[in-house]
Design a protein around this nucleic acid. Structure first.
Lengths: 238, 238
DNA sequence: GGAATGCGATGACTTAAGTCGTGCCTGGTT
DNA sequence: AACCAGGCACGACTTAAGTCATCGCATTCC
């Protein structure tokens, strides 16, 4: 794989995209590249935050972990997304941990340079605001799911999202690969390995999906959507 | 009650506090005051967002509601806090509903004026960024609680927060009023009325707290703290 | 060709969470 | 004083969620 150009990476970040080339170059000059193997930690919850990370290749997950080992993924960021800006802005420690989901590279931009840029360039600041708002909106919907929906609905939503993003329409239905283990899916939708397995099987039994090795085929998209819409019990029709 | 001064209200908002008096006056001139009775809705999830609301008196809750009627409070904002800025920045509809927790008044500032201000005044923009970051941090901790902690721990945290904010140390322990109904507490910590009742009783039985009318007395703060720290089962000592 | 390993499947069980119904206070209203 | 409504208490029950242990199948690694 060719060495990636830091300038191109920065340009993919929504709030740097507005900068002219020479400013991007100046920023890139302050960046340090870091490679991470799969599952390697980028930082841990509680660590002090000294700069901004930009995902250049691969993917990073932001997650909370309980002493029991159970984990909840907050968000997974891919190329062109940033990690750690939250702690950077309010000055506190990282609110969650970050680790590579696959082999990845990230750029590290020291706090100082980034904050100066935000302070002096209002179009960057404004774009940062927009991206923080989008993130808050996402967190809000995660709270809604965890609090008001059951595991099966969260799993249905997860599958539907994958189908929309990576799905290919074939004569059998909408197909997409499922790389992660049940354990990882559990961490994303807020439950454990076992329940992911059981609920997947339930979907298969009901003819909503079909599973082949590391691949899912959605047979009945309408029914999958209906599952997503569900809420906790009592919503059962009378 | 005397009529409140809009300028004073705006000055309490962290990201307006930096403005000189004449700018605050100019902003205030664009504001419309609105009174709400307890439980009156300010806006509903999905409504388009046309401006920013600033709480002047009373308190507004931001919440998600399921068809079953079950509700999850995201955050409660009091005087000097804003409501609705999230949708304003990313241009989407409101991600949650808002209603008055008690009789309240809010200022309404049209989108246009506020966005212009953010775009042209970088110190306001920067302060907005900081407040969005703080809010995200809060949402993150709510997700952690909902996903990784049990109802009793969430209730313990709720009680501890109240004790810290409103508690008065007496010879019996730390006392504070508990205005809300079990229903409302449930909506805040992500459960139903019944479980709040049962878990409160459990704390009373164990001698951690004592309840009198609309008042709570924390008898054993150390134990309450220990409860807050807990996670889901398996963490039980062996 | 095993041996080790990690993951998925699954049945049996335990427990927290949630539901339902009833009855009792308490505070406010007329 | 009598009444009513809202909220709380509580016991009995149901169910989703989670735990545990076992088995089997691929992959990978010597």
């Amino acid at each position: 794989m060719a060495v990636l150009d830091p300038v191109e990476t920065l340009r993919r970040v929504p709030f740097f995209a507005v900068l002219p080339l020479e400013e991007l170059r100046a920023l890139a000059a302050h960046c340090v590249v870091r490679r991470l193997d799969r599952d390697e930690m980028l930082f841990a919850e509680g660590d002090p935050c000294e700069g901004l990370f930009v995902v250049q290749a691969g993917a990073m997950k932001l997650f909370k972990m309980a002493e029991t080992g159970r984990e909840q993924v907050l968000v997974t960021e891919r190329a062109g997304s940033t990690v750690g800006e939250l702690a950077l802005f309010d000055g506190g420690p990282f609110p969650a941990s970050a680790a590579a989901v696959e082999d990845s590279t990230v750029l590290y931009l020291p706090k100082r340079e980034f904050l100066d840029l935000c302070r002096h360039n209002s179009s960057v600041a404004f774009a940062v605001i927009r991206s923080l708002a989008t993130r808050s909106r996402y967190l809000t919907s995660l709270i809604e799911e965890l609090s008001l929906k059951e595991v099966s609905h969260r799993l249905a939503r997860f599958l539907r999202d994958r189908a929309q993003r990576y799905g290919v329409r074939t004569r059998r239905g909408v197909e997409f690969p499922l790389e992660e283990t049940n354990q990882e899916i559990g961490a994303e939708i807020g439950t454990v390995r076992d329940l992911v397995s059981r609920n997947l099987r339930r979907f298969v039994d009901r003819g909503i999906i079909k599973m082949e090795r590391r691949k899912v085929i959605v047979l009945d998209m309408a029914e999958l959507e209906a599952q997503v819409a569900g809420t906790k019990r009592a919503a059962v029709e009378k």
